[in-house]
C-alpha cells in the first residue's frame, strides 16, 4: 500500500477511533472511583446506547425479512424461468417493504472496529511496561480534565487484572461464550432456506466457542466488554420480543443433498416449508403453508409431465 495512504489510514484510525476511546476510558476511570472495571462497563453501555438505532434497525430488518419469506417463495415459483424478472421483482418487493437485504449487517460491522479499538485502547491504557506508557502520553487530550493525572490506571477488578487474561482461564471464557450464545439465539431470525438454517445453526455455536477461546488469550478487560455488551443486547431484545426466541425450538438443519442445477432452487425449500412452522412467524402462517404445499404439488406434477415428454 502507498505509504501516504497507509499513514492516512493510521491517522484516521488513531484520531477517529483510538484516541477518543482511550480518553473516554481514562476519563470514566477518573470519575468512577478509579475503577477500570466500572469504566469499561460504563463505556460499553454508552457504546450500546449510541448504536441502539442501528440495533433496532437490524431487528426491524430481520423481522421484515422473515415476514417476506412466503412472498419470496411465491416469486421464485412465479418467475422460475425468468431469472432477470425474478431479480427485478425481488428488488421491487424489498423496496416496497422498505427492506434492505444487507441491513442486518450494520451493527455487526460496527462492532468489529469497536472490538479492535477497545483491545488496543486497553493494552495502551493499562501499560505493563514503560514503552507502552510513553506511547500513551501522545494519545491523551490535553483539554480533557483528569486524564493525565489518572495515569497509571489500576487494572485490578474483582479477581481480574484487566490488562491480562483471566487467571482462572475458565470463568470469563465461559461467561463470554454463554452470553454470546444467548444473544445470538435471541437475535437470530428463523430462515426458510435450509442452507441458511444450517449456517445459522453453525454460527450459533461457532461464535461463542471462538470468542470463548479468544478470551483465554486476550486481556480480560475485553472479555468484560463482550459480556456486558451481550447482556445489554439480550435485555434490548427481551424488551422487543420477550424471551420467546430463546426457548424457540430450533429446526434441525437438513443436510442439502446434491441436486441437479434446475432442481436446486425448489427442492430444499419444499422440504423446509413442509418441515415446520418455525419458518413463518406471521399469523397466517398455516394458510400460507397449505398454499405452499398445493403449489409445490402442482410444481411436482408439472416437472413429472415435462420429464415424461422429454423421454
Amino acid at each position: 500500500m502507498d505509504p501516504i495512504f497507509a499513514n492516512l489510514f493510521t491517522d484516521i484510525w488513531n484520531q477517529g477511533i483510538l484516541r477518543p476511546m482511550i480518553n473516554s476510558l481514562v476519563f470514566l476511570y477518573a470519575v468512577l472511583f478509579s475503577n477500570m472495571g466500572l469504566s469499561i462497563i460504563a463505556f460499553t453501555i454508552f457504546i450500546r446506547l449510541v448504536t441502539t438505532p442501528l440495533t433496532l434497525r437490524q431487528i426491524r430488518q430481520m423481522r421484515a425479512m422473515s415476514g417476506l419469506q412466503p412472498k419470496l417463495q411465491e416469486l421464485r415459483e412465479k418467475y422460475k424461468d425468468d431469472k432477470s424478472k425474478l431479480s427485478q421483482e425481488t428488488m421491487r418487493m424489498y423496496r416496497q417493504a422498505g427492506v434492505n437485504p444487507l441491513g442486518c449487517l450494520g451493527p455487526m460491522v460496527i462492532q468489529f472496529p469497536i472490538w479492535i479499538g477497545l483491545f488496543q485502547a486497553l493494552v495502551q491504557t493499562l501499560p505493563t511496561n514503560p514503552d507502552r506508557l510513553v506511547a500513551l502520553s501522545d494519545k491523551l487530550y490535553s483539554w480533557v480534565p483528569f486524564v493525565h493525572e489518572a495515569i497509571p490506571l489500576n487494572s485490578d477488578f474483582l479477581w481480574l487484572n484487566l490488562a491480562e487474561p483471566d487467571p482462572t482461564n475458565l470463568v470469563m471464557p465461559l461467561l463470554v461464550g454463554a452470553s454470546t450464545w444467548v444473544q445470538q439465539k435471541m437475535t437470530t431470525s428463523p430462515s426458510a432456506d435450509p442452507r441458511q438454517q444450517s449456517t445459522q445453526s453453525m454460527m450459533l455455536w461457532m461464535m461463542p466457542i471462538m470468542l470463548g477461546l479468544l478470551t483465554m488469550t486476550f486481556p480480560s478487560g475485553l472479555a468484560l466488554y463482550w459480556v456486558v455488551s451481550n447482556v445489554v443486547g439480550v435485555l434490548t431484545q427481551y424488551f422487543i420480543t420477550g424471551w420467546e426466541p430463546l426457548f424457540r425450538k430450533s429446526t434441525a438443519p437438513t443436510a442439502p443433498t446434491p441436486a441437479p442445477a434446475a432442481a436446486v432452487d425448489s427442492q430444499p425449500q419444499e422440504e423446509t416449508s413442509e418441515n415446520g412452522g418455525t419458518t413463518d412467524t406471521s399469523s397466517d402462517g398455516q394458510d400460507r403453508r397449505r398454499s405452499h404445499r398445493s403449489r409445490h404439488a402442482r410444481t411436482r406434477r408439472r416437472s413429472r409431465r415435462g420429464r415424461s415428454r422429454g423421454s
Binding site: 493494552v123 505493563t128 511496561n129 514503552d131 490488562a163 491480562e164 487474561p165 479468544l214 488469550t217 486481556p219
Partner: peptide, 13 residues
C-alpha cells in the same frame, strides 16, 4: 488475531 495481538504483545519489553 491471537498471534498478532495475544499475550506476548501485552507483556513484551
Amino acid at each position: 488475531l491471537t498471534g498478532c495481538t495475544g499475550r506476548d504483545v501485552i507483556g513484551s519489553a
